[in-house]
Design a protein around this nucleic acid. Sequence first.
DNA 1: GAAAATTTGTCCGTATGTATT
DNA 2: AAATACATACGGACAAATTTT
Lengths: 245, 245
Amino acid sequence: MAGIKQVQRQTGVALWRQIADRIREAISSGAYDETGMVPPETALALQFGVNRHTVRSALAALAQEGIVRAVQGRGTLIERKERLNFPISRRTRFTDGLGDQARETHSLLLEHAQEPANAEVARWLRIEQGTPVIRLETVRDADRRPVARGTSWFPAARFPGLVETYRQTESITKAFAALGLSDYVRATTEITAAHADSGDLADLELTPGAVLLITKAMNTDLEGVPVQYSISRFAADRVQFTIEN
Amino acid sequence: MAGIKQVQRQTGVALWRQIADRIREAISSGAYDETGMVPPETALALQFGVNRHTVRSALAALAQEGIVRAVQGRGTLIERKERLNFPISRRTRFTDGLGDQARETHSLLLEHAQEPANAEVARWLRIEQGTPVIRLETVRDADRRPVARGTSWFPAARFPGLVETYRQTESITKAFAALGLSDYVRATTEITAAHADSGDLADLELTPGAVLLITKAMNTDLEGVPVQYSISRFAADRVQFTIEN
DNA sequence: GAAAATTTGTCCGTATGTATT
DNA sequence: AAATACATACGGACAAATTTT
């Protein structure tokens, strides 16, 4: 089971890097497909002739890349992934956009409040700073796998009772419809990427170092008046966005 | 200079995490603005009453978030960042899209070749697999800072001499124009995010763990015939994308 | 320009804690 | 309950890069 090529010292490339590369190759070559796990750290340390900590550095790098996930007491599992596709267009809607990619989608309302708009929210919703807005904190699942967490703000005066309707329907589109807004469109979307923070790790069931796709989006009614501003944080290894022009 | 709150053991929260949080706060409060650096590891270890390795774990986490950057022999520098905005639309062009956000942009041609299209390239360019394509590997800078590296493929038969023209003009738009294609449009864009690999680290001057925004884009001529397929890898902390619908 | 001091990087060894099997 | 496996933390040594003397 020992590899043919051993790691080499004093080559200018750190041992843990060489080992990470070696394990990455082994994973993609399917060497560990039987168990779906990487061998225990102690076994790898023996195999490569290094200290267990050196192996840990290598595994930490791979975990950080999302290739493996260490579980205390169990072992280091190999991750496999498929990405859901989210089209971004004038007609962008979360659930509809998924189409038949997921059998079952859920939206969990974590928290809600009515509060005065801060500078950023006011700018996006084109209202005066301090105007009352409704804030919703949600986590969205597709087939039991958390996909995104986000915060949305709505002008409070225009959508009384939004929270109750949303809680029942789990859909912004339906809540809007129930409140007299039959249609709306995506006006602008801003996309960045960053590392997950501790809140993301918990809500999206991620491991430290995970990557997020972050969108800031503004929806308007058909007259172009802003009705929703959202910041959404997507687990990057579970989604991709597509834009058709 | 010692902090008022000390870190606490046996609380269920690892020491290195507590220390990372403490340093993160100190940075954002401007405590280290004078030097633009975090104190040396040994000083922090003394301040928090822990081993230097524990401080290193904390700093590694912050480095991985892109908040600091360690430089051997010098110290741990605090990163500050501004993001360039890339609009994605039917008229998407790299340099023009930047507008006045950068005084100076460059495109460095790393490598080029003519080769048969593989399955992916053939699918995007809507040509037969094996048809000759021109491949360009480039790195793009804005104000001396590398922003993106990418690979582009073009149908070889349609654009003879593309490489020479591109090398002179540093512009795909101008190279197309010189070869008789006066205008083209962005048809589809696919966006994902991931960790940087070793090639990205080198070309984009990033540190391990850095996050990338990755686009797969297809441009067509005005008749809708694909003329270019590109995979671009953007340093996520230097850019954002915007989509206006 | 050379030497010394400073600072981060790598690696080892050991001990103990915590979660899972 | 015991064994296994990952997580955290400490201590030490030396290497490598940079800055200071």
